[in-house]
Design a binder for these strands. Structure first.
Lengths: 341, 341
DNA sequence: TTGTACGCGTTATCAA
DNA sequence: TTGATAACGCGTACAA
């Protein structure tokens, strides 16, 4: 280790090693055309001095920062944080750091804001979470600015190099299959808001499976929510107002599913005896609510890690996959329909 | 607005304005010794050209980045994200950006990691969330590195300039007062883990109030958890194993309180008829669980904003307060004790 | 395979 | 009050 004091610079290393600083620079940047002996000599000095390159100087010279940006528009907290953890798994012990940037997709100035942000920060690349990951103009902006990007989504939004996705549609088909298998025929859907690709995919999966099973899907069995708890309450109330009401509900996310729980409780409808509920996300609420909720869980942290690796180490094996299958997490909110209804 | 192309630099501004670049620099940095006319002339050119200083170059010259760091060790997701939102409220439309850095307080290398991080990134300042905000060595490290810092906590961990805190102890006293007022005398406490100042403060508040009311606090009415759901389940089971059991439980956070809900349900203990429960945090689970939970909510987002302002604009009024009182959020998990027990 | 000289865009020193 | 010039630490032509 070096003695404390002003941190050693590339010049110190060059002087001590008896080479030019360009040679040191080559070692740092893994230039292939270097004699092995030189490289080792320099590396030894680097270790002795405890030298690390100054990121600010590099950023200035390269016109590019060793910073990854996380762009998101307020999906649920757990998703953002899990993804963040994954990104940090990927860049741990590297020179990269993560800067977080929430944006407002309803603001007309959003794209300009992001443009300024990218122009200012000169990011190495950005990771974009849904729902703004679905905005193609934003992706185009990144390309135009020469900023790497990876989008996270529920469908094939982009090329594999710029994408981590899950198989929402297929998973929801599986949910319906499961419910039908144990006897449900009247199944309600609480779908997510317009303009969210995840909401679209999940609805399509739902409807596809219903059709495949030859099941009717009356108009009033499909209610739209906005991914918030209260919209789940309202939607479930609409579904339960009918007589007879559906025996099972799939909600497009856990928060709305929790809202459906709430509505059921207020009416004295027992879960799962009188009503089965399945959510999507496997957020903490799903495990903590009573009865524990059956839901679809997606590997968000792994997706975050892979997304970051696509930017900082695109050639590693872990950076290759772009589809991350979700899985059904079976708990206690589903049962066969009771006969009495 | 400027035409697109390479962004204008300070040299462009200087040339067009017919001054030296140092003068432009003085304008940017609000140097007081500038003739008003010169300043206005330069500012006009800056506006015309759409010039903004290059952060990388500034960072290199100043040896300091215009970056705020958020250091946290995995408290709950909602807390981190709310705080983050507050920080971003504070730095919106400024040159600052936020970099997030989760750390592992159990790692022996934590302090070294953070030291490297600070040395590398040359942050303007860091915001530290509990529980690592309680680590005095970490604060000392920041001072040593010349890095501004603000800690968030449940007590007066530091000087007002480096602190945003809530009044946990007092609030929990209020919770006990409330429970006693409506008739509870046997109240259980599920406390947080050792080494968390928040856990300590909340316990002290609890015990102080119990003593003040002349109420007994048997050893088996106090159970320790670790702030996780499952520990809340276990703790509540211990509390409910007793006969007669407590008529009310205060849990040191919502997640454990939700665990207590779970335990109660499994035993057929009705909330709030047979058992009142109060949590702490006002996290989403509190509003979404059944029955909606009475809990203590603290203004995390405001705290985040104030904390950031203490670093970037310490002289503004909003940066002054360091204590942010929590408040009791009354919902439906509390009722007078039923007679039958 | 290695070194020299210069550029990146800003701030700081010190003299005018 | 302003300006010339030298840092800041690293990368890149281009030459050797």
């Amino acid at each position: 280790m070096a003695k404390s004091g002003p941190a050693p610079t590339i010049n110190d290393v060059a002087r001590v090693a008896g080479v030019s600083k360009k040679t040191v620079s080559r070692v740092i940047n893994r230039s292939p055309l270097l004699k092995q002996a030189t490289r080792e000599k320099v590396e030894k000095v680097i270790a002795e001095l405890g030298y690390t390159p100054n990121p600010q100087a590099r950023a200035l010279a390269l016109r590019r920062n060793f910073l990854l940006g996380l762009l998101h528009d307020n999906p649920n907290a757990q998703t953002v944080l899990n993804f963040q953890e994954g990104v940090l798994d990927a860049i741990r012990d590297t020179e990269f750091a993560l800067v977080v940037r929430p944006v407002d997709r309803h603001s007309p100035a959003m794209l300009d804001d992001i443009r300024n942000f990218l122009e200012q920060q000169r990011l190495y690349g950005v990771l974009i979470l849904p729902p703004i990951s679905e905005n193609d103009e934003l992706a185009a902006l990144c390309r135009e600015m020469g900023c790497g990007y990876v989008r996270m989504g529920s469908a094939a939004l982009d090329e594999a190099e710029q994408l981590v996705q899950s198989n929402d549609r297929e998973m929801v088909e599986g949910v319906v299959d499961y419910l039908v298998e144990i006897g449900h025929t009247r199944i309600g859907l609480i779908e997510g808001p317009q303009g969210f690709r995840s909401a679209f995919e999940r609805r399509e999966g739902f409807l596809t499976a219903m059709t495949r099973h030859g099941l009717e899907m009356p108009d009033d069995a499909l209610v739209q929510g906005n991914y918030r708890f209260s919209s789940g309450v309202e939607a479930a109330n609409r579904l339960l107002d009918q007589n007879p009401h559906v025996t099972a509900i799939f909600a497009s996310n856990d928060e709305m599913a929790a809202g459906a729980y709430h509505a059921a409780r207020e009416r004295g409808v027992d879960i799962p005896r009188d009503l089965s509920i399945v959510g999507f996300d496997d957020s903490p609420i799903a495990a903590h609510i009573w009865p524990p909720m059956t839901t679809v869980g997606w590997p968000i942290r792994e997706m975050g890690k892979a997304a970051a690796l696509k930017l900082v180490a695109p050639d590693t094996a872990e950076a290759k996959p772009s589809c991350f299958p979700a899985r059904l997490v079976t708990r206690n909110s589903v049962a066969p329909p009771s006969k009495k209804i």
